Amino acid sequence: MTWVGIFIIVLLVFLAFSAFVAYKMITPPRLLGDWTPKDLGFDYEEVTFETEDGLKLRGWWVDNGSDKTVLPLHGYTASRWEKLYMRPTIEFLLREGYNVLAFDFRAHGKSEGKYTTVGDRELLDARAAIAWLRENHPERAQRIGLVGFSMGAIVTIRSLAEVEGICCGVADSPPMYLDRAGARGLRYFAKLPEWLHLFVRPLTKLFSGGKEVHPIEYAERVRKPLLLIAGEKDPLVMVDEVREFYEKNREINPDVELWVTDAPHVRTIKLHPEEWKGKVGEFLGKWMG
Rank of each mutant, 00 (worst) to 15 (best):
M1Y: 10
M1P: 08
T2L: 00
W3I: 08
W3E: 15
I6R: 07
I8D: 03
I8V: 15
F17Y: 14
F17S: 10
A19D: 12
F20M: 14
F20T: 15
V21K: 09
A22P: 11
Y23C: 04
M25E: 14
T27P: 01
P28T: 07
L32Y: 13
G33L: 10
W35V: 01
G41C: 07
F42E: 04
D43R: 12
E46G: 02
D53A: 05
D63M: 07
N64R: 08
S66Y: 03
S66M: 05
V70N: 06
L71R: 09
L73G: 08
G75E: 05
T77S: 10
W81S: 12
K83Y: 04
L84I: 13
Y85P: 14
N99F: 04
A102V: 15
D104I: 03
A107T: 10
S111L: 11
E112S: 03
G113S: 04
T116G: 01
D120P: 13
D120L: 11
A131T: 09
L133V: 06
R134Q: 11
H137D: 04
P138G: 05
V147G: 09
V155G: 13
I157H: 04
S159M: 05
L160K: 04
I166G: 12
D172K: 02
M176S: 03
G182E: 09
G185K: 02
G185Q: 05
P193L: 07
E194R: 06
L196H: 06
R201M: 05
L203S: 12
T204Y: 01
K211L: 09
H214G: 00
Y218F: 14
E220C: 02
R221P: 01
R223C: 06
K224M: 01
D234L: 11
D234R: 11
P235E: 03
P235K: 11
P235D: 11
L236I: 01
R243L: 07
N249K: 03
N249L: 01
R250T: 07
I252S: 11
W259G: 02
W259M: 12
V260P: 07
A263P: 11
A263C: 11
V266Q: 07
V266N: 14
K270Q: 14
E274W: 14
V280Q: 13
F283N: 02
F283T: 04
L284T: 02
G285H: 10
K286E: 14
